[in-house]
Design a protein around this nucleic acid. Structure first.
Length: 581
DNA sequence: GCCGTTTTCGGCCCGACTGTTTTCAGTCG
């Protein structure tokens, strides 16, 4: 996969052009970086399949960049990048990560003091050499030192599921202030992106100063980066940066629209406004100096001739085009996204019978409290019994007795007898016979070992599992763990075609580290007409909340209610699973 | 450097905050 290398090279080219005030090129390279960051396919594969043409078909990639990608594939380098790097050979990746340090300052530091790395930078500041440079006063030095510390603290993006509890706590606390009329968390949290880089909080208040004072004094705040009347920025102890913006009622909708993003969606909407001789900014939609919209997002979108977009799909991944098609009465418009409350049950969780922390009864009671109508207990089944305390046929028979008992004693929730069975390297269920599997209400198949097989064999392995009529769902189909384990090598086109043909269901595993399928693969499944299920993979009652994360990814993947099987009622689902075989 | 149902040339989203610049550059989102 060469994408990360191209991303690094293009980012650096962008910074170098910015150092020299080259107009427009930096933004062009930045845009291309965002596009490449959000794609899954390997640029090299795309190039090998379709040459430069296939590359320039991507948004933001034109001839110049396609040539550079080609050059990198052929020679392993990009001459223009090397030329620029030679002029200013510095560790851009880490220097630019320092808050408040941009290309101009990095250039000055290199030219005047030969600063190349974070260590160099720390050294010259501590040696008192930096104060002689223009625009490097004591405050700047202090901020840079703090920024270096922050970068070294391993600052990265945080998993959505890990950030949400704190975010909601802060949101609630601000909302309860008497000085605030409304508080909403915007940004990637509102879009429910799988990882988030910072918090963007928006508030309506007629006393912004007091709200800002309160915000900056919260116990989670480690350092105040900026504090103004309309915007404040802080670093939190957990490594997240948080921004609070206070806006007026009249501008709340446009501010929410703007700070929800993403950036490319916003650029598109602003251009569309421009095309109608309007201006869209965070204060409203303007015709000349007259504000014509801004109180609500619906109003803002309407004013520029667009429908409302659910936050989860605001990624400039075709939603604007779909809306425009819809406006012209053409097919393939915006989807009617599955709703959070459409989910009736949870189709993967574990109990004390295998590696869960709570009994079947405790899980069922907790799920009922969350409004689930049914759950599937899917304890591990495998010949490799030592793994995750997996069950054999004998123990399953005992476990079923317990499920029957709990089903009798609990009203208002149904428990399905399920299993998450390992599949071997040929896609065969490991340790449980077909004659036994058929007795379960629902069977999940998953890969837990030999995850590094070559692409063709791994794809074959999964498709073989799909062909087995006793296996209903492929659990966490790609095996990835966000920020820690790569996806297994799979030909997703073939996987989708295989699922469509066999009627196999692909799981959207809602566990924060997994979110697997991810949003883009969900989109492919939707397009292929493949059904999906959402399961929390809960190992404790606290994890049952994760269902929301899975639905969020389904929404980000443009899934509708019909695409997700656990939007069905219990009787519908049982009938559906029986027909599946 | 990219892009195009008003364009293959002439545009390119827009504003807040900081610091030390006495009028604005740099950075960020």
């Amino acid at each position: 996969m060469i994408n990360s290398k191209i991303i690094k090279i293009f980012s650096e080219i962008s910074e170098y052009y910015a150092m020299d005030d080259v107009p427009f090129k930096p933004q062009a390279y930045e845009k291309a970086v965002r596009v490449i960051e959000s794609m899954e396919e390997d640029l090299e594969v795309i190039y090998k399949a379709g040459g430069q043409k296939a590359l320039t078909d991507m948004p933001g990639i034109g001839r110049g960049m396609a040539e550079k990608i080609e050059e990198f594939i052929k020679t392993g380098r990009v001459k223009e990048h090397e030329r620029l790097k030679k002029k200013c050979p510095v560790d851009l990746e880490h220097l630019t990560a320092v808050e408040g340090l941009g290309p101009k300052m990095i250039k000055t530091l290199y030219q005047r003091l030969h600063v190349k790395t974070l260590a160099d930078l720390e050294k010259v500041i501590k040696a008192g050499k930096i104060g002689k440079l223009p625009r490097f006063g004591s405050k700047v030095q202090e901020n840079i030192l703090r920024g270096i510390k922050f970068v070294k603290g391993g600052q990265g993006r945080i998993l959505l599921g890990h950030a949400l509890p704190l975010v909601r706590k802060i949101e609630k606390r601000l909302a309860e202030l008497k000085e605030t009329e409304k508080v909403v968390v915007a940004g990637s949290i509102r879009r429910m992106k799988e990882t988030i880089g910072d918090l963007d909080i928006l508030a309506i208040s007629s006393e912004p100063k007091r709200v800002m004072d309160f915000f900056c004094a919260m116990p989670e705040v480690e350092k105040i980066l900026a504090q103004g009347e309309t915007r404040s920025s802080v670093h939190l102890h957990n490594g997240l940066a948080a921004d609070l913006r206070v806006v007026s009622q009249e501008s709340f909708g446009s501010a929410l629209q703007y700070f929800t993003g993403n950036k490319d969606h916003n650029i598109r909407t602003r251009k569309i406004a421009q095309g109608k001789n309007l201006k869209l900014n965070e204060y409203g939609v303007w015709r000349g100096k007259k504000q014509i919209a801004g109180r609500t997002e619906e109003e803002v979108y309407q004013a520029i001739g667009l429908p409302y977009f659910e936050p989860e799909i605001r990624e400039d991944r075709g939603e604007i085009e779909a809306a425009l098609r819809q406006a012209q009465g053409k097919p393939s418009g915006l989807p009617k996204l599955v709703k959070y409350e459409d989910l009736k049950g949870d189709l993967q969780m574990h109990s004390t019978w295998s590696d869960g922390a709570y009994t079947i009864k405790e899980m069922a009671e907790a799920a009922k409290k969350l409004g689930r109508q049914y759950i599937a207990i899917t304890d591990h089944g495998s010949a490799k019994l030592r793994i995750a305390n997996a069950l054999d046929e004998k123990r399953f028979l005992k476990q079923w007795q317990e499920i029957d008992k709990v089903n009798k004693s609990l009203s208002g929730i149904k428990i399905l007898k399920g299993v998450e069975v390992d599949i071997d390297d040929k896609g065969r269920p490991d340790g449980l016979s077909d004659a036994f599997l058929v007795k379960f209400d629902i069977v999940l198949a998953s890969v837990h070992f030999k995850m590094r097989m070559p692409k063709a064999e791994m794809t074959e392995r999964i498709i073989n599992a799909m062909k087995n009529p006793h296996l209903d769902i492929i659990a966490h189909p790609t095996g990835r763990k966000i920020q820690s384990r790569e996806e297994m090598a799979l030909d997703m086109e073939k996987i989708m075609a295989g699922a469509k043909e066999t009627g196999a269901i692909l799981e959207i595993n809602a566990y924060p580290e997994r979110l697997d399928l991810n949003d883009e693969n969900i989109r492919k499944a939707v397009a292929a007409g493949v059904k999906m299920s959402v399961g929390t993979d809960a190992h404790s009652i606290e994890h049952l909340h994760y269902l929301e994360l899975g639905v969020a990814q389904a929404r980000r993947g443009w899934a509708e209610r019909k695409d997700i099987i656990n939007t069905m009622s219990y009787p519908e689902l049982i009938k559906f699973l029986k027909n599946q075989g």
